[in-house]
């Protein structure tokens, strides 16, 4: 297969279900060898996008290319080179985890030579392969799908909220595995709700809402467009802070104030605060919800005030 610059390329994708428009002119590019985050609130169209990329849904219009192939017409060939892990894993209740992993890797035609890799992953994710699928918890069900996916040596990994049931230790194991794949030059599309996970893993991010791209680019760049939330208690009066440049949504309650600061004014605002004798201060970066919401972004910020 020829190495294309983009492992995934979507142009002006439209998908409707009856009356509702799930994807409304969506564009997305993921370069070969990068970890690309797909972010968006529930119902934004993340899973629909992924299901089009997998050839499970047929695009109404637009161009979709995955590993230089058409996911609808070349599904069988394409799937030899990609794996998919959904957020909700439903498999055969009366098969064991081990049987399912073997069956799925066998169907893809992966060489059975990766027994060592399989064993290593089972240990890493602490999954007992002898249990029936029906007895696994949600997290363990996800592990079955993850181990089956990671045991396959393919070019593209499409993961749709793959860690929603994992505990923090296994989340670290998961991130570790993704980083390993990245060093091997694999491409990963990761849809997620967990900002920490996206921050830790993704090179680039596409944020979608209502079936459209809201923002796309490197995570640092997106961060730059957003404000920092500050909650501070001081000895001296905070009343003057409201009028400082770059301060928004100011709320004062006695000696405590909560407000947001534009990134370019952060330094000067903090400098002013120290003069008021800070007793306690909490600053946090924008949450994922805040990233989703358009009015938090720099270009509209000034209009709000």
């Amino acid at each position: 297969m020829t190495k294309n610059k983009y492992a995934i390329s979507i142009k002006d994708l439209v998908k409707t279900f009856g009356e509702t428009t799930a994807l409304d002119g969506l564009d997305l590019q993921a370069s070969t060898g990068e970890v690309h985050g797909l972010l968006g609130p529930n119902g934004a169209g993340k899973s629909t996008t992924i299901r089009v990329l997998l050839g499970l849904l047929r695009a109404d219009s637009g161009e979709v290319s995955v590993l230089s192939q058409d996911p609808w017409n070349d599904a069988v060939e394409l799937h030899k080179n990609l794996v998919y892990v959904p957020g909700e894993v439903n498999l055969w209740e009366n098969l064991t985890g081990g049987e399912i992993i073997d069956l799925l890797t066998d169907l893809r035609g992966t060489e059975s030579g990766n027994d060592k890799r399989r064993q290593e992953l089972l240990e890493k994710f602490k999954l007992d392969p002898t249990k029936k699928f029906s007895t696994y918890s949600k997290g363990n069900r996800q592990k079955v799908a993850l181990v089956a996916a990671l045991a396959s040596d393919v070019d593209l990994y499409i993961l749709d909220e793959p860690t929603s049931g994992l505990d923090p230790l296994l989340e670290i194991a998961f991130q570790d595995e993704i980083k390993k794949l990245k060093t091997q030059g694999k491409t990963i599309l990761l849809s997620s709700h967990i900002l920490a996970e996206v921050e830790a893993l993704c090179d680039t991010v596409t944020i979608i809402r209502d079936g459209k791209v809201v923002e796309s680019g490197s995570l640092d760049k997106l961060r730059h467009l957003t404000r920092t939330t500050v909650r501070v208690t001081t000895n001296k009066s905070l009343a003057g802070v409201k009028s400082l440049q770059g301060v928004h949504d100011f709320k004062l309650d006695g000696h405590t104030a909560g407000f947001e600061v534009q990134p370019d004014q952060l330094n000067s605002v903090i400098a002013e605060l120290t003069k008021l004798e800070i007793e306690s201060i909490i600053c946090h970066p924008p949450t994922i919800e805040e990233l989703f919401m358009g009015h938090y972004r720099g270009k509209t910020a000034n209009k709000n005030e």
Binding site: L54, G55, E77, H79, Y84, W92, L104, L107
Partner: peptide
């Protein structure tokens, strides 16, 4: 149930 796994497993 599991068809999406089968179909995406080539």
């Amino acid at each position: 149930r599991a068809l999406e796994f089968l179909l995406t497993s080539s």
